[in-house]
């Protein structure tokens, strides 16, 4: 079994936890978010018929009161940047977090996902901004915590990128 540490990053209340809640295994209360700033969850995906376990470090949403701890990011094989489509500011936070992540773990695969795809009409993050992100090499997905959309694709895409970066040895099956 291959394991990979993946961090979930995003601004305050962008819906990180809500987005993945029904797709992951968890034994800890969300209360840990506000105490130590992280809860650890687990998601298993299949890449090329091989199981890969993504150990998700769901980090507390960064805002003016609490910053993401660099130490939580260390050792990550990839990360997920979550934004709220209806709040433009969460894009800025994501950009800042991207810088933090690069500084801490270097160039590792990451996926950006914009939540609340079910209310696209209310979005403040427009297509142009998204296009700019994609031009910078970002993989941008759309998701909906309400409808459960985009999450499986998110994990599979990220896991695939991680595996391609560091191939799975055959004897780890």
């Amino acid at each position: 079994m291959m394991q990979k540490k993946v961090c979930m990053l995003g601004g305050f209340a962008v819906g990180k936890t809500s987005l993945v809640r029904r797709f992951v295994s968890n034994v800890f209360s969300e209360h840990y978010h506000t105490t130590i700033g992280v809860t650890v969850e687990k998601k298993s995906v299949k890449i090329d018929d091989r199981d890969v376990t993504l150990v998700l470090w769901d980090l507390y949403g960064e805002d003016e009161f609490q910053r993401v701890r660099d130490s939580y990011l260390r050792g990550s094989s990839g990360y997920i940047l979550v934004m709220d489509g209806t709040r433009r500011a969460t894009l800025d936070t994501a950009l800042a977090l991207r810088q933090t992540a690069m500084r801490t773990v270097g160039t590792v695969p990451f996926i950006a996902i914009i939540n609340k795809a079910d209310v696209r009409s209310e979005w403040e993050i427009d297509e142009r901004a998204i296009e700019q992100l994609r031009e910078q090499g970002w993989t941008v997905l759309f998701g909906s915590a309400k409808l459960g959309q985009g999450v499986e694709e998110l994990f599979v895409t990220l896991a695939t990128q991680i595996v391609q970066t560091s191939p799975i040895p055959s004897d780890s099956l």
Binding site: Q3, K5, S25, N26, V27, F28, Y32, I36, G37, V38, T39, V40, E41, K42, T53, V55, W57, R69, S71, Y72, R74
Partner: peptide
């Protein structure tokens, strides 16, 4: 025994939290 992989992550997180 709880999920050992999640526990391992949390144990590591707690250590980082305390140290930080």
């Amino acid at each position: 025994v709880q999920d050992q992989q999640i526990l391992s992550g949390m144990l590591t997180a707690i250590q980082s939290y305390v140290r930080d």
